[in-house]
Design a binder for these strands. Structure first.
Length: 511
RNA sequence: GGUCCGUUCGUCUAGGGGUUAGGACACCAGAUUUUCAUUCUGGUAACACGGGUUCGAUUCCCGUACGGACUACCA
């Protein structure tokens, strides 16, 4: 069997889209599963759209996601360089071969001339206004120009492109691993530009040449490439590489959550979830687009979620480590239909992965939040809090956000809860409880509870009735984790101080 | 407009000529929790439509509808 060599080949035109991460992931899974090679190639043939920093961003993102590159930009390898802008001469050579063998030709048409051609065809009622086997005979190219005219133009340094001479009548067949046979008639493909007037190749040429030279066995890419795949097949044929042609797998697209259409940054922004793996600062607008990492998603959880967007193992197992994914992945089980992006499911995965972490790791999340707030806390205490908060956290930041009341005393009290629960009876019990606590040598969760039971029993009031009021007095909130353990963590003095403050503050309000 | 691709619960999907069409997320209800969350139990909910083929079609075939991608000297 052929050695598995796959590539992820993004353009450095901005941050890596989350869909790109999935594409990279599927490539990576196939490579690892078959002891193959994962290649990172940078397709920077469009000088106008090049964004500084994008390349580094892409590499960092893949690294964060746990997708390791074996060969390519940033790593090196036997087929270097892996940046297409550095491979110009290679493409030139193959373009020349196509030219020599009559499968390509020079074209000198200006943008204006091309526009005019399309307008003319449109006016004549032609459906497809393309540069093809018919229209090329009316344009300025090496097929219509005499040898002298051609030489004159060349000598004058007239800008030109090289176009593929697509056959007039030919059925082009492509066996896609996901969609099986796709057939397109050559009359539907136009004479694509292979070499631009700036001397750079277009995607089509560069892609085919590089995939061949880099001995790529499988091209796994987004479905947006399916319409041009037959063109690529034609190129392989013309270049004499039909037998070395990689297998194609065109992935279903990631769709926006509501309505239809490709998932875009705009949709994600509107619905409030990230679209990029890492926070990306747009070099032009200077705007920060928050990343999955910074939003608190764990890489393993995101990978698991992404893997399931279009693929499934055929069993009911949902939680998969990267190693398990590598083992179970198969292209055959990738679906055909587009997949709507559901951030809620991503959050569920995150919660699952977060809970699977040790208390010590979770405590570290809290500690790092506390460091930012400049609050001291011992590791032991942080572990206690982690245990307390674990079941209610989806993101690492939740330990701080939902547990900050343990460190910061309330300055105000939830008014709804106060209105409902803060009454004379509650005040009576809570003041008595405060006194009872003050008489205690020390405080822990068990003692806090038994003491409360004693106080309520002696006053003839049910514990449940005043518990929410007690929570309110200590935390200012109407809901939260186990109050007794929370009290233990805060410590006796702090609890008493807080109750006293509540008694004073809310007495005024109630009266 | 043209070409290509697609269509099973709200979402991700399993399945496949005869099934009570299965699971997960979400949602709803009950139980647990003195609260919220968690957890547990249960529930609502799907084969786009029309023709064939067949004893029988959600499954195969053909149309239609709907959706998407592509239609650049962008990738």
């Amino acid at each position: 069997m052929r050695e598995v060599r796959v590539r992820f080949a993004p353009s450095p035109t901005g941050a890596l889209h989350i869909g790109g991460v999935r594409t990279a992931l599927y490539n990576y899974l196939l490579a690892r599963q078959n002891n193959g090679t994962m290649i990172l190639r940078i397709e920077d043939t469009d000088q106008n759209r090049y964004v500084p920093g994008a390349e580094e961003y892409i590499m960092k993102s893949l690294e964060w996601a746990g997708i390791k590159i074996d060969e390519g930009v940033g790593v090196g390898g036997p087929h270097a360089p892996y940046r297409q802008s550095e491979r110009k001469d290679i493409y030139k050579k193959y373009a020349q071969q196509l030219l020599d063998e009559g499968n390509a030709y020079y074209a000198f048409d200006t943008e204006q001339e091309l526009d005019e051609m399309r307008e003319r065809l449109k006016a004549a009622g032609v459906d497809n206004q393309q540069y093809n086997s018919i229209t090329r005979l009316q344009m300025r190219n090496s097929l219509t120009l005499s040898a002298d005219e051609l030489k004159a133009l060349m000598d004058a340094g007239t800008p030109y492109v090289i176009r593929l001479k697509v056959p007039k009548k030919e059925e082009i067949r492509l066996n896609d691993l996901i969609r099986s046979w796709v057939m397109v008639h050559s009359s539907q493909i136009d004479d694509k530009v292979l070499m631009k007037s700036d001397g750079m190749p277009t995607y089509h040429l560069a892609n085919v040449v590089d995939d061949y030279l880099m001995k790529i066995s499988h091209v796994i890419r987004g479905e947006e490439w399916l319409p041009s795949a037959p063109l690529h097949v034609l190129l392989y044929k013309f270049l004499g590489w039909e037998n070395e042609m990689p297998q194609f797998a065109h992935l279903p697209l990631l769709l926006k959550p509501s309505g239809d259409g490709k998932l875009s940054k705009r949709d994600a922004d509107q619905l409030g979830f990230p679209i990029f793996p890492l926070t990306w600062k747009d070099p032009i607008t200077k705007e920060d687009a928050i990343g999955y990492k910074e939003a608190g998603y764990l890489p393993d959880a995101l990978i698991n979620f992404l893997a399931f967007l279009g693929w499934n193992p055929g069993t009911t197992q949902e939680l998969f480590s990267m190693d398990e994914l590598i083992h179970e992945f198969s292209i055959e089980r990738i679906g055909k239909a587009g997949t709507k992006f559901d951030i809620l499911k991503a959050q569920w995965f995150n919660q699952q992965y977060l809970r699977a972490k040790s208390d010590s790791e979770l405590a570290d999340y809290l500690l790092s939040s506390l460091a930012k707030e400049k609050i001291d806390c011992s590791k032991d205490k942080a572990i206690k809090i982690a245990q307390l908060m674990k079941e209610r956290a989806t993101f690492p930041k939740d330990f701080w956000e939902q547990g900050k009341f343990l460190f910061i005393p309330p300055t105000s009290f939830d008014e709804q809860v106060a209105g409902k629960r803060w009454n004379d009876e509650a005040v009576k019990v809570i003041s008595a409880y405060k006194d009872a606590l003050a008489a205690l040598p020390s405080l822990d969760a068990v003692i806090a509870k038994t003491t409360l039971e004693e106080v309520t029993a002696s006053l003839g009031i049910g514990t449940g009735k005043i518990l929410q009021a007690l929570r309110l007095s200590i935390t200012g909130l109407g809901a939260g984790p186990d109050l007794m353990i929370s009290m233990e963590i805060m410590g006796k003095e702090e609890v008493i101080k807080r109750i006293a403050f509540a008694l004073e503050t809310m007495k005024v309000k109630v009266a």
